[in-house]
Design a protein around this nucleic acid. Structure first.
Length: 828
DNA sequence: GCGGACTGCTTACCT
DNA sequence: ACAGGTAAGCAGTCCGCG
């Protein structure tokens, strides 16, 4: 079978080119279509253009459905011979759909199912035909027959089936290899410039999921050849760097997919420029360097750095497990394996043995990041390719909003709906009416209730399943249905805002997001936990479930994001307004029936020791009133709420400690305090009863006291344990308004020759101005023990632990410092 | 010149 | 470039103060 992995514009053939993965030969194949023409739409007759533009091959009057005005419109469809002309047409007023990439246009119009199986029908002019899968089709029928889905309309059924196909069809085990290179550098912390490519490539490692581990190394003068690490399938030694690169290029072409970590910006870019510099002819280099990415002529290049950087992926699919996006952090978090730590960290000084070991290890973990848990990451990429209807190269590098945009555009094209221009949505649908709490925001968002501080035993947390997507579904919200043109719909207002919703037409958003939501709630979530399934299938369902989650979590936010094609802030504010209404009324009702509500945030309510019947009553009442499932999400043995919002911890029945928002878990917190905090978690997880809590409290107090004395006596072992690690989000020169501490430290590092830019994590220690030459901060690399500002650290210890101690009625000043403080005063 | 009250900036978190 | 809401710490500003 042939799986479509890529679509692009081939400028030589002036055609759309599809790249197909053949799962039998494990090679890439091509398929081109030169008949499809790029086009744009225009409200006015493009006659004057036709005479001037030689590229125009056809113009015709077509009908489109204008969803903003709920009427049919006539549009000129102008086909051109060169896709660039479509881009150029953006300069003309009242033209539509000309920002869509040519190959995407092809995918949408021809309904090309990206990432899905096809076969060639050779007898009929090499046609591509979709290949049905019996097992998958059977499962799809099973889904459509679920009780929860028996009342679907035919329109809904069609949409459910379409989503289910993308999620039920299996994906092959794609043959792939990871690639990592090491380059001569002039100092331990120097990173060679990829565009200059002045220095030789010292080693190249490839690791494939078919078991190959190939190492290429360049002989360095004065370095004796010794032994090589075991488990390498092939080591090739070169005296000639050019020959090494040429052989690598041949090897690369034998893999349909190449995986790198930061290959766009370094490995592939370096190889390309280095090869050119060494005189390899351009045509013999399989790498094409584009402005921000590197692609391969015959393979698909996936840069995992780009993929793991996608914020929605990081947070929702990987649970924010890795804090920084570098190979070591990501691998440690996901596959419990990191980069090799050795005494010698400078590539140039390593023996061939150690160099290969180091380089191959990077290649191996890069590969493993795509293979662990039955190809979790690879499958995520494929499922997202399918759902977004974008080529792998694009979907793995672009963010969730572009995926949503892409499938929305597809659905418009499939239904012959004119894709509105942002300006029109704005003028017809109006602006926001609510006022945000945060200065500078466009509209009011979620509501957070004040917690009832204290330690509470047996707390149940109830929440709405996907509240925002549910609201979009239930209340038929969308850019076309909000404030629709029908006078008779104007009375259909829902919450506190004056916006009304259409009663005649179903919004695309409600249909698409609603169906995804239902599939997730009633099928994929359950299947992902279904232990009676084969492990591979179960893991696949996990992937499907996570993919839906990522897309759904962003599905409301995009309508409040100016950059989104269908930007419509009234939609976004209506969703949050209804959510506030729903959670507010639910809380009120809970209190009315005598439940003890402790806290709530956006879509959840914390209830203390609720009687089962009352809980049932609330859940039923809520579902009846709003049509949204409200269910018990978590049960805490006990929960400690401080007076602060978004700031608590709870211990679940199984002893797992849930920490939310506390400073102790934030990534910038110095290791010494973080360690103490983690020890505290251990103590808390043991506590089962109020009596045991008293014992736990004493242990925690002792623990905090110990840390206090470490600071007071300056008896820490290593200053690096005192380092705050703060990310510098902007380039140094962009800090114009203030000079935060981490930026100050970054400046000091740059003076010492370190390479630091936007995204660097700065580790710094707070210093005493009087002891550290007038500066209150120093990079951990340069700080001396006596310069540390101990007072600041005790302050930080205090505020970190107050968040834990307050709800347990422990006073830091009195109960931890008490005696000591008096001690200090008596000296004065 | 130096503190306190205040605002705004920055980061990291929660939903 | 998915959103808004919250916590925390620090930088910078203004004001008062013989």
């Amino acid at each position: 079978m042939l799986y479509i992995l890529s679509a692009s514009y081939d400028s030589v053939l002036n055609a759309v080119k599809l790249e197909l993965y053949n799962d039998k030969t494990e090679e890439m194949e091509e398929w081109t279509d030169a008949d499809f023409k790029a086009y744009f739409l225009s409200k006015r007759d493009p006659a004057p253009l036709v005479s001037r533009w030689k590229t125009i091959v056809k113009k015709e009057l077509i009908k489109k459905y204008d969803a903003l005005n709920d009427k049919e419109v006539e549009m000129w469809k102008v086909s051109v011979n060169n896709p660039l002309a479509v881009k150029k047409s953006q300069e003309i007023e009242q033209t539509y759909e000309n920002y869509i990439k040519f190959f995407q246009c092809y995918i949408y119009d021809k309904d090309i199912k990206m990432g899905m199986p096809y076969r060639r029908e050779n007898d009929k002019n090499d046609k591509l035909v979709f290949q049905y899968d019996q097992d998958a089709q059977q499962r799809i029928q099973e889904i459509l027959n679920l009780d929860s889905f028996k009342n679907l309309t035919s329109e809904e059924r069609e949409v459910f089936e379409k989503w289910a196909m993308l999620l039920e069809y299996p994906a092959p085990n794609f043959k792939r290899a990871s690639l990592d290179i090491e380059v001569f550098n002039e100092g331990e912390n120097q990173i060679p410039n990829a565009e200059a490519a002045l220095l030789p490539v010292l080693s190249i490692c490839l690791a494939s999921n078919r078991g190959e581990k190939i190492a290429f190394i360049l002989v360095q003068a004065d370095k004796p050849i010794t032994d090589f690490p075991e488990n390498i399938t092939k080591v090739v030694i070169f005296n000639d760097e050019k020959l090494m690169l040429e052989q690598l290029f041949e090897a690369i072409e034998t893999y349909p997919l190449i995986i790198t970590f930061n290959g766009d910006d370094f490995d592939l870019k370096y190889l390309y420029y280095r090869a050119l510099r060494l005189g390899v002819p351009h045509q013999k280099i399989p790498i094409i360097v584009k402005p921000k990415i590197c692609i391969l002529r015959k393979s698909i290049h996936i840069d995992l750095y780009k993929f793991f950087s996608i914020k929605a992926m990081k947070i929702y699919a990987f649970g924010d497990k890795y804090k920084d996006v570098d190979l070591d952090s990501v691998a440690r978090a996901l596959i419990k394996r990191g980069k090799i730590e050795g005494e010698e960290r400078w590539i140039v000084k390593m023996s061939y043995h150690d160099l290969i070991r180091y380089c191959m290890n990077d290649a191996e973990i890069t590969l493993e990041l795509t293979t662990y848990n039955n190809d979790l990451v690879m499958n995520l990429i494929i499922v997202l390719e399918r759902m977004s209807r974008m080529p792998i190269i694009n979907v793995s590098r672009k963010s969730v909003s572009s995926w949503i945009k892409s499938f929305m555009l597809y659905e418009h094209r499939q239904r012959n709906i004119l894709i509105p221009i942002p300006e029109e949505i704005k003028t017809i649908k109006g602006q926001t009416v609510s006022e945000a709490i945060i200065k500078g925001k466009k509209y009011k968002g979620a509501i957070v209730y004040d917690p009832i501080a204290g330690t509470h035993f047996l707390v149940k947390v109830l929440d709405f399943a996907s509240l925002y997507p549910s609201i979009i579904k239930v209340y038929n919200i969308g850019y076309s249905t909000i404030n629709c043109p029908h006078p008779e719909c104007k009375t259909n207002t829902i919450g506190e805002l004056p916006h009304w919703m259409c009663t005649k037409n179903r919004s695309l958003e409600s249909l698409l997001i609603g169906s995804l939501r239902d599939l997730r709630v009633f099928w994929y979530k359950k299947q992902a936990k279904n232990s009676s399934l084969d492990k591979v299938l179960k893991d696949w369902y996990g992937v499907a479930e996570q993919s839906i989650k990522v897309i759904m979590n962003a599905s409301y936010g995009v309508f409040g994001a100016e950059s989104f094609v269908l930007y419509c802030p009234p939609v976004a504010e209506e969703v949050t307004a209804i959510a506030r209404h729903v959670i507010g009324k639910t809380t009120e009702h809970a209190q009315e029936i005598g439940l003890n509500v402790l806290y709530g945030d956006t879509d959840s309510i914390f209830i203390k020791d609720p009687p089962e019947d009352k809980l049932r009553e609330l859940i039923d009442w809520t579902y009846k009133k709003y049509g949204i499932e409200f269910e018990v999400d978590k049960i805490y043995r006990y929960v400690c709420l401080s007076i602060r919002k978004k700031n608590y911890f709870g211990v679940k029945i199984d002893g797992e400690v849930d920490v939310k928002g506390l400073t102790g878990k934030k990534k910038h917190t110095p290791p010494i305090i973080k360690t103490a905090f983690n020890d505290t978690k251990k103590i808390l997880s043991e506590v089962k009863t109020p009596e045991e809590l008293e014992i736990g409290k004493k242990e925690i107090m002792d623990l905090v006291k110990r840390v206090y004395f470490i600071f007071k006596n300056r008896s820490w072992e290593n200053v690096s344990d005192l380092a705050f690690s703060v990310t510098m989000n902007s380039a140094l020169e962009d800090y114009k308004k203030t000079m935060p501490q981490h930026v100050k430290a970054a400046k000091l590092l740059i003076e010492r020759g370190y390479q630091i830019g936007a995204g660097s994590v700065i580790r710094f220690v707070k210093t005493d101005k009087r002891l550290a030459g007038g500066t209150n901060v120093k990079p951990v690399e340069t700080v001396k023990k006596h310069e540390v500002d101990v007072r600041k650290y005790i302050e930080f210890l205090k505020s970190t632990f107050e968040q834990v101690l307050d709800p347990m009625n422990i006073n830091f000043e009195q109960d931890i410092l008490g005696v000591t403080r008096l001690d200090q005063w008596s000296h004065k």
